[in-house]
Nucleic acid binder design. Structure first.
Length: 469
DNA sequence: ATTTTGACGCT
DNA sequence: AGCGTCAAA
């Protein structure tokens, strides 16, 4: 699409965490509520407040008790705690749901980071004594470049005239995965024993999130960074390589780093200065694609033909409706039945299972635009109402829960995408370990190509799915 | 005792 | 590459 004629939609989810909780407990819809982490200190700290509550002056950062004073009907949802630490998994999963919908329906989806925003914006306002960006139009390109530098001045000059051609990057993945916790006041970590426990707790959370990330995104973090703030108020960040995903290794590496800052004798259990904040972060992700499979990418079969994995839960996501390309695929595959999955992201692959035709999606999208709730409901109706789309196994739906056919655990239906993905990736991993090779020789399942339906609505050209490859 | 998380910038 | 800072929710 021509960058001059593009449309960029900015989606900002209001008090998202509150909505996630209200979806689980719809009886609170329309009522003033917020989400708090931790209970004990003055009713927990609010990290999200809905508009009904904001009308009473309740704000993020306030304590639950204070919110109750301002608004007696205020309801507090509490963030799940694991090992005594707030765990935001529920909201991350909900966010992943949103991105699944966006990725399935839009060509480019970028997690916004408002670069050039914030501080730079204030500097510009101060420098040029303007309140709105349009007021900058009275300045010449030269003037802007003199003050802001050649590049930024040029960017700003165009921006004020509605010209901004920066590409929207198709990127939804986190660059880092981190877990941290404050230990304020008397709760500070002042003994090796306490520190050891928390190294383990944080390591466990990071490990779980990394495993899930590896399953879904086929990548591995290579760098572990330990961050801590001491009672001296200094913040320290030190890194070490990640050779293997393991709770104990993460925990031990973290502890080893922290011990370097202990001013006490190594024989004592006391740690000084004590730790006020401790965090572990994993980053420097590398795609965990085997070199063998990269070689395969250059073979005719795999570069030209997009094949799909063959596992028991892979299903034909479209009704029978013969198409010529499919026959070609089938023939080629039969010639040399080697299938690799390397060209497909798991996420995209996963979603494809539940995909309807373009027409159905477009129709659905129109109705989804109305409210978030109906959108999400209809999104999930895609695979909760259509038995043969799901899998022929008898998944029992009990209100909002589904019994997973693989592990027989009761799973919230909106957590099913990750859950199912996890099973798939796990199986894949097992197979990989077993064969010590990424090449799969199983027969691929026939997959239909999507025909692009041409629609006369302007936005539809935008809503068209991503092109393959 | 606002907490947790993530990205970016500086050296 | 490693570390510190800063902002968002």
């Amino acid at each position: 699409m021509n960058a001059d004629h593009r449309v960029i939609a900015l989606i900002d989810m209001d008090c998202f965490y509150v909505q996630v909780e209200q979806r689980l407990q719809p009886e609170f819809l329309g009522k003033p509520c917020g989400v708090a982490q931790y209970y004990t200190w003055k009713g927990g700290g609010l990290i999200a407040v809905n508009y009904e509550a904001r009308n009473f002056g309740v704000k993020r950062g306030m304590r639950g008790e204070q919110a109750k004073e301002l608004c007696p009907d205020f309801h507090v949802f509490h963030v799940q705690e694991v090992n005594g630490k707030a765990n935001l998994t529920r909201y991350r999963d909900a966010s992943a749901d949103v991105f699944r919908v966006l990725n399935a329906n839009f060509k480019l989806v970028e997690k916004a980071s408002i670069d050039e925003g914030g501080k730079a914006g204030e500097r510009v306002m101060e420098l040029f004594q303007v309140e709105y960006i349009g007021q900058l139009r009275k300045y010449s390109l030269d003037a802007l470049q003199t003050s802001m530098g050649e590049k930024d001045g040029y960017w700003l000059f165009n921006l004020t005239r509605g010209i901004e051609t920066t590409a929207v990057n198709s990127r939804n993945l986190y660059k880092t995965i981190s877990a941290s916790k404050n230990f304020p006041g008397k709760t500070c970590l002042d003994t090796i024993d306490k520190i050891r426990i928390w190294c383990h707790n944080l390591a466990e959370e990071i490990f779980n999130r990394l495993e899930k990330d590896r399953a879904e995104n086929k990548r591995r973090a290579k760098l572990l960074t330990v961050t801590c703030t001491l009672t001296t108020n200094e913040t320290i960040a030190r890194s070490c390589p990640i050779n293997e995903y393991s709770i104990d290794r993460f925990a031990n590496d973290t502890l080893k780093i922290l011990k370097q800052y202990n001013k006490n004798s190594s024989t004592s259990n006391i740690y000084t200065p004590a730790i006020i904040n401790l965090g572990i972060s994993a980053g420097k992700f590398l795609d965990s694609v085997n070199t063998k499979s990269i070689a395969d990418l250059f073979s005719k079969q795999t570069t030209k033909v997009e094949t799909i994995r063959s596992t028991e839960n892979t299903i034909n996501w479209q009704e029978e409706d013969g198409e010529e390309e499919d026959n070609n695929i089938e023939e080629k595959v039969l010639e040399k039945p080697i299938t690799t999955i390397t060209t497909l992201s798991i996420q995209g692959d996963f979603f494809r299972k539940f995909k309807k035709t373009d027409e159905q999606i477009n129709t659905q999208l129109k109705s989804e635009n109305k409210t978030t709730t109906s959108s999400i409901t209809s999104f999930f109706s895609r695979y909760t109402t259509n038995e043969n789309v799901l899998n022929s196994s008898p998944n029992k739906i009990d209100d909002q829960y589904i019994t997973c056919s693989k592990c027989h655990k009761s799973i919230l239906m909106w957590n099913m995408p990750e859950h199912d993905d996890f099973h798939y990736a796990h199986e894949l991993q097992m197979e990989e370990n077993k064969t010590n090779s990424i090449i799969k020789t199983s027969k691929p399942i026939k997959r239909k190509t999507n025909k692009q339906k041409i629609n006369n609505q302007t936005l539809d050209s935008f809503i068209n799915k991503k092109p393959k490859n």
